[in-house]
Design a protein around this nucleic acid. Sequence first.
DNA 1: AAAGAGATGGTCT
DNA 2: GACCATCTCTTTT
Length: 192
Amino acid sequence: MSLVGATPISRSMLGGEAPEVAPLLLGKILASSVGGERVVGRIIEVEAYTEADPASHTFRGPTDRNRVMFGPPGHLYVYLSYGIHRCVNVVTGTEGSGQAVLIRALELLDGVETARRRRARPDRELADGPGKLCKALAIGAEHDGIDALARSSDVMLLDDGVPPPRRPVTGPRIGISKGVDTPWRFRVSGPS
DNA sequence: AAAGAGATGGTCT
DNA sequence: GACCATCTCTTTT
């Protein structure tokens, strides 16, 4: 598989509701060039969050923190989790609608050496969690709101032609206390 | 192998 | 003052 020729995904792909868009992001590529070091991974696990969803940061309407989620699709919503970790989302839906897809795990394709240095963990733990992958790709608060479909961005969403899984594994989202009934976690088949 | 607990700070009530 | 869209280390089976 070659990453040469991979192009930003189409913005129209992100215009639907997060639970519909989320499985379409499986197989797409998240590429970082932060600090001049390239780290690239294929998206293998995601979760959807919508405005009508009690687990979502947007459930109680727009605030200073979540305003990016109400903005245009394709931009990144980066937030601080548990006071320690950064997590990255791709905004979906029409402008004003307050929804996004959380990127939960990557299969690294390039820049593994850099990821090892940033993470200092066994290879299988370099990007197998939302906070872990942000550290591997050096995604931080400064990337909140950037357009992941713009060629000038340090963090980009790419498509190399690999189709999403025909039948992704679905299940409840992780680490939430409300909205546990909605099966809005999606993963390519493989180790959980 | 599994379970438990502490870290740590922004956001919202 | 409570609550986290998590991770890592320590303790226990």
